[in-house]
Design a protein around this nucleic acid. Structure first.
Lengths: 217, 217
DNA sequence: CTGCATTTTGACCAAGTAGTCAAGTTTTTG
DNA sequence: CAAAAACTTGACTACTTGGTCAAAATGCAG
């Protein structure tokens, strides 16, 4: 009994060794690549294991279920992905704040397209793994920022616009370049890779949205 | 030999019987529901067969491969999905033409969200089945309409804006409501179902985009 | 109504894949 | 440095799933 108690005590803090840390990272990085390309069902554990450079049983030693990897990955990236929204400052200049937000989002789409695709895929399939997150964490955050935008509109600092639809519009346009990359490339061809393409994109998106919401006389 | 020739002749017109017509329709309708929800890999033939109300071997009698159903479905809906773009009239009033286009797209997102999700999923995963379509059919069409928009800009009828990014923006914002429906619902809750929601959405999107591209003094 | 063509299906197979296990290897620790 | 703990893996199992097949049922033309 004393032994059992000690064992339980030892397990509780769930200590992580150096090797665990390294391998979990390797697995999650590999999993992001594969899941974001093939989706949950389309991804096999073998694929992830191979990309992570370890055997399948070894991978399963760290994450006993495929689901575990997927959910861990989603949780890990979601907060980071939403960070820019939280940074919108109610006291700042509306147009400047939104310019900053849009710019940040376009940069994220460019630097972490896998994260964007991972979410897009999850939502597209009905968000089975993160519907809780959406209502418990995302909704309150969006509600708060929608309040800020509504206030700005009330003060005449922005044209009358529904704050929720504005936020959706920003998400849609910025993430489009990550999620629909293949389509963008099929249409714009070699331009996409060229230096300055991201700036051109940012310029176009900012120009339309900001002029679209600038207060009109 | 004569018999073989006759047989070949008979196969060539690929006559479709009444039963074939009915069953192909049943299968494709069922497949659209399932594929658009679970994606290609996430869908099983059994699921489609069950929803179509027939046995799996029977379904395979009409479409020998899973791929066949999927590709047929994509081809069948793609043209229809792009039809509104083709209707943009170079001789019409720019703002009016774009208003009409955006409105049509929002309506389609509302009435055929499955079609939107089917494409979104396909593109998200790298468009393995329709990359040819994108370059051979979609690109020329977009190039043509981009030319029209560019001309409008040149004539001062629209604010200076990159036509390709404008088109992407319209696609992104309108399809967002179909593809990310779960997220929209998680955030806007009961509002989504309410009558008038579609109109409110259209109003918000039109207001921002049209004001964003209206020529400025 | 009769015989041929079309349609339908139960039973089956082969491949792929999530997850197990016991036996080995390496790392940590007292 | 020796024992314990942590880590690693080849071989395997159970199950899912795309697709086959032969035989039965149904539809239809003459």
């Amino acid at each position: 009994m004393a032994r059992a108690a000690r064992k339980k005590l030892k397990e509780a803090p769930e200590k992580t060794t150096r090797i665990q840390e390294i391998n979990r990272r390797l697995i999650l990085d590999a999993a992001l690549d594969v899941f974001s390309t093939y989706g949950f069902r389309g991804t096999t554990i073998d694929q992830i294991a191979e990309r992570a450079g370890m055997s399948k049983p070894n991978l399963l030693y760290y994450f006993p279920r495929k689901q575990n990897i997927y959910v861990t990955l989603l949780e890990e990236t979601l907060t980071e992905w939403l960070a820019p929204l939280a940074e919108i400052d109610a006291e700042g200049d509306p147009i400047e704040q939104l310019r900053k937000y849009i710019t940040l989002k376009i940069n994220m789409s460019e630097t972490h397209p896998e994260a964007s695709r991972l979410f897009a895929n999850e939502i597209l399939h009905g968000a089975p793994a993160i519907s809780d997150f959406l209502t418990k964490y995302l909704k309150p955050l969006v509600d708060e920022k929608a309040g800020v935008i509504r206030r700005w509109v009330g003060e005449g600092k922005l044209a009358p616009v529904d704050p929720y639809h504005l936020i959706f519009m920003i998400w849609a346009t910025t993430q489009h370049y990550a999620d629909f990359d293949v389509q963008v490339r099929a249409i714009m061809g070699s331009q996409v890779g060229r230096p300055g393409f991201k700036e051109q994109t940012a310029q176009a998106v900012l120009s339309i949205i900001l002029n679209g919401i600038r207060p009109r006389d």
